[in-house]
């Protein structure tokens, strides 16, 4: 089923990022990538704990963790408001904020936690976003979200935008609906995977000190990619709403 090259260790000798190797679980006849699920559950638990602890014992004048939580909420609110405008942004804060926090948490979990210490029978633990399935799911959710936004605001009149400004552009407008999730998912997947590959190739060449700046760059790129994904999701929703 899988080509021979998946099992060759030509690439894994050079770089330990095991592209194409997965820790398969068989759930009701479906093969799922267990390592992705494990790390994304961890990210979910961290985010849940953070939001529960951050909203306990609320005070009039925030300090400590409550301050940080309010800052986070302000930040994701600003992402939504910048793209969607004052009149629509409120109902989309949960969606945009969840996208941002989940991608941010996944990227940083992959970059900061030393997953190499935990051995799996096959494959390795890493950021959930370096699996194309995760990013494709997030991108498809975005697609559904902007279709829902457009349809709930304008009803069937939403489809009028396919023949605007002239009906000649109908094919291009339809293709756009496919390229949006495609580019969203590839951008995130490629960036996260590229960071991990660069780090592992560099580590195999020079194990000390030299990979550190690239690791810092990877952490930075992870946060920028989370920002970009949520900004673009908000922009697509805004486009469907206007």
């Amino acid at each position: 089923m899988y080509p021979e090259i998946f099992n060759s260790n030509m690439f894994t000798l050079l770089a330990e990022a095991e592209v194409g190797k997965h820790f398969y679980w068989n759930i009701a006849g479906f093969l799922v990538h267990g390592q992705v699920l494990l790390v994304s559950w961890l990210v979910l638990v961290i985010l849940l704990l953070f939001s529960i602890v951050g909203t306990q014992n609320k005070e009039r004048f925030p300090k400590g963790i409550q301050n940080f939580t309010e800052y986070t909420v302000d930040f994701v609110t600003d992402i939504a408001r910048d793209q969607l405008g004052e009149s629509f942004y409120k109902e989309w804060i949960p969606f945009i904020g969840t996208l941002f926090l989940f991608i941010f948490g996944s990227n940083w979990a992959g970059a900061l936690i030393p997953w190499k210490l935990i051995k799996l029978p096959e494959g390795e633990l890493a950021a959930p976003t370096n699996d194309i399935n995760t990013t494709a799911a997030l991108a498809l959710l975005t697609s559904f979200a902007y279709f829902y936004a457009g349809l709930s605001k304008k009803g069937l009149g939403y489809f009028k935008r396919y023949i605007e400004p002239i009906p000649l552009l109908l094919p291009i407008n339809i293709i756009e609906d496919f390229t949006k999730p495609l580019s969203l998912s590839f951008r995130l997947f490629g960036n996260v995977l590229a960071d991990e590959l660069t780090i592992s190739v560099l580590t195999s060449l020079v194990p000390l000190i030299v990979p550190l700046p690239i690791m810092v760059l990877g952490i930075f790129a992870g946060s920028v990619q989370a920002l970009i994904f949520s900004t673009l999701a908000a922009a697509y929703i805004a486009e469907a709403l206007e």
Binding site: F6, F11, V19, S183, F186, R187, G190, L193
Partner: peptide
């Protein structure tokens, strides 16, 4: 991101 698309194609070809 545009370079990354090239990288994704390269990775697909290799792996």
């Amino acid at each position: 991101a545009l370079t990354i698309y090239g990288l994704v194609v390269a990775l697909a070809l290799l792996f």
